[in-house]
Amino acid sequence: MSRWKRPSVTLVVCALLTLVAVFAFMGMLAVFVAQSAPVWRSEGWSFFTQKQWFYRQQLFGIAPMLYGTVVVAAVALLVATPAGIGTAVFASEFLPRRARLAVKVAIELLAGIPSVVYGLLGIVLLRDWIYRALQPFDPLSGDTLLTAGLLVGVMLLPTLMTLSDDALRSVPASQRLAARGLGLTATETALRVTLPQAWPGLLGALLLAGGRALGEMIAVFLVVGRQDNQWPESLLSLRPMAEAGQTLSSKLGGPEINIAYGDPLHWAAMVALGLVLLVLVATLTLAGTLIRRRKPHAP
């Protein structure tokens, strides 16, 4: 057929715009890599393992920030996972359709609240509660890794709930009906039939939520304390949770980026922070997306 020989204007325009978008993203990656090059040359792997960041002395180690990022994300997931998946299970397995939609609407609204509003709530309410709750541990203020983790946990709830609900809903209704027809209770059906088949979707949801937790800036920035070089005495100790800390994103969001522009190495170190964050989040997101695509193994 000769009909498709000459590309149409629509195709050319679409293809061009798509290429623009793709290359813009690739360019972004390239800029990050190129501009961070000096710090890789000067620090190498010690960029990750160094425990000190003093830009006046040209010391650039991000280990404490990695630690803070991981702790905040872990606390957030620890809080949000049971609540988010529990809500999704309740909504999709036990609630009639109408009520399920009502819960979904509530969750969508929760998802729409801007992070700066969460930050404001964190500063005004959560920070004081945490300060009072942590009195036995003698905290300096309510700005702690724990505060940031809890706040991000609340922010993750809608993401987790929505993605988990998708995963649970993708298990065919016939499977539930078959289990109920055998005399299993709704709980047994959920635990033995639905959840085992939905696990790729649930794991994917966790990974995607984890990616969001790592990248969240504004809310964390406002309540984490932004204390540099907080390295715990023991990695397993819970004590640092009651202290201020710094995460990759809160560092990047701070005023230091404006100071850094004059000094090539300092600037490279800041951009490298962004690159590390990008790689971490993109890896989690990619893994989560790929796992979620694995459809449940049922006819």
């Binding site: 065919p172 016939s174 499977q175 009906l177 078959a178 289990a179 109920r180 027809g181 055998l182 005399g183 299993l184 209770t185 039939v193 049922a298 006819p299």
Partner: peptide
């Protein structure tokens, strides 16, 4: 649930787990 254990059902399309 107990009732369904006494009155089983077989569907048009087999639903194996």
């Amino acid at each position: 649930d107990a009732l369904r254990a006494k009155i089983g059902i077989l569907f048009q399309q087999p639903a194996v787990f």
